[in-house]
Amino acid sequence: MSLFWRIFLLNAAVLITATLLLLGPVTVSTPVLLTEAIVLTVGLAAMLIANAALLRIGLAPLRRLARAMTTIDLLQPEPRLVAVGSGGTAELIRAFNAMIDRLEAERAASAAAALSAQEAERRRVSQELHDEVGQTLTAMLLELKQVARHAPEPIRAQLAGVQETTRDSLDEIRRIARRLRPGVLEELGLVSALKALTSEVTGHTDLTVEQHLAADLPVLGREAELVIYRVAQEALTNTVRHGKATAVGVNLEHRGGFVRLHVRDDGRGIGGAPEGSGIRGMRERALLIGAHLGVGPALGGGTEVRLTVPVGEAGGRP
């Protein structure tokens, strides 16, 4: 029975019952006696209370559905609503769940294509920086060295400063190229790539990095390793740029059929600030491999990022 007919018949039953009572044992005098007024008032209150209670019970699934519609976030999947209720209510909830399943599948497919294109573009830019800009700066260093060798002393000192600036620029170009395309990840694996990442952070900032990286990790797919690396990279980048932290810990372990990455700093935390594109990008990457990402305040202050990746047959949600 549809919601319309249930509400209609409910109200009809209440009105018919009231009419029968007025035509039967309950009568109203003119003027209305006090006892009759009390009976009518109590009866009306009872009908209103019964009507409100029955409507609240009948419309409860719709209220839950409306709340889910206003809070749903495709980047943070939640358990689906249970299709309870009679008539069209359960059908509406099932349709809503099917719509969310379809939207999540479409978003995952589009995000996978976008991230794949992004990684390809990063590789291309990294290669061009390394091959073209890097080689050009290297040639400039050689020419400056040759010119400085035959230059008089005052100019030689100036050329030495130019050489140092060019050498610093070359190092920065190489660092950017490594961030765009982590070659060590493809050549030496995830643990070595994370060690190189933390070494790079400590080499260019005053941040103290404490790392605990398990060496007995199971075999992960190339995509899963890239997601773990990019999440760690983004977490450390946020710590350096926004966290105002002095220390950060990076932990990677394999336990209970899951590989867990934990990055925690002692900075100012995220507070009530809305999630930026970096965190949402991490969530999109996590969804691609069925992982769970948690970002929030750490105990004692700071921010922590937790990525839980299912491995093998444990590929359910943690």
Score class of each variant (00 low, 15 high):
residue 196 A to W: 00
residue 230 R to D: 13
residue 23 L to E: 05
residue 237 T to I: 06
residue 56 R to Y: 10
residue 310 P to V: 02
residue 292 H to R: 04
residue 94 R to N: 12
residue 218 P to D: 04
residue 125 V to S: 05
residue 215 A to T: 11
residue 31 P to D: 03
residue 100 I to T: 03
residue 210 E to C: 08
residue 15 L to W: 09
residue 17 T to W: 00
residue 169 S to R: 13
residue 107 R to W: 03
residue 185 L to Y: 00
residue 282 M to Y: 07
residue 192 S to Y: 04
residue 102 R to D: 12
residue 98 A to K: 06
residue 185 L to S: 04
residue 235 A to D: 01
residue 120 A to F: 12
residue 118 Q to F: 14
residue 175 R to Q: 11
residue 21 L to I: 08
residue 207 L to G: 05
residue 272 G to E: 11
residue 284 E to A: 11
residue 268 R to Y: 02
residue 316 G to E: 08
residue 169 S to V: 10
residue 274 P to A: 09
residue 73 D to I: 03
residue 90 A to P: 05
residue 297 P to L: 06
residue 255 R to C: 06
residue 299 L to S: 15
residue 83 A to P: 10
residue 180 L to N: 02
residue 68 A to C: 08
residue 184 V to K: 04
residue 94 R to D: 11
residue 172 E to G: 12
residue 113 A to F: 09
residue 7 I to W: 03
residue 267 G to N: 02
residue 278 G to E: 01
residue 214 A to H: 01
residue 45 A to H: 01
residue 50 A to V: 12
residue 161 G to M: 10
residue 1 M to R: 08
residue 19 T to Y: 06
residue 296 G to Y: 10
residue 282 M to I: 07
residue 265 D to N: 11
residue 27 T to W: 00
residue 119 E to G: 06
residue 41 T to V: 12
residue 106 E to F: 01
residue 153 E to H: 06
residue 157 A to Y: 13
residue 211 Q to R: 14
residue 47 M to G: 03
residue 306 R to T: 11
residue 145 K to S: 15
residue 10 L to F: 09
residue 35 T to Y: 08
residue 144 L to V: 09
residue 75 L to A: 10
residue 260 R to N: 07
residue 251 N to A: 14
residue 178 R to D: 11
residue 289 I to W: 02
residue 230 R to H: 08
residue 224 A to S: 15
residue 214 A to T: 01
residue 185 L to D: 00
residue 157 A to Q: 15
residue 141 L to M: 07
residue 236 L to G: 04
residue 64 R to P: 02
residue 219 V to Y: 09
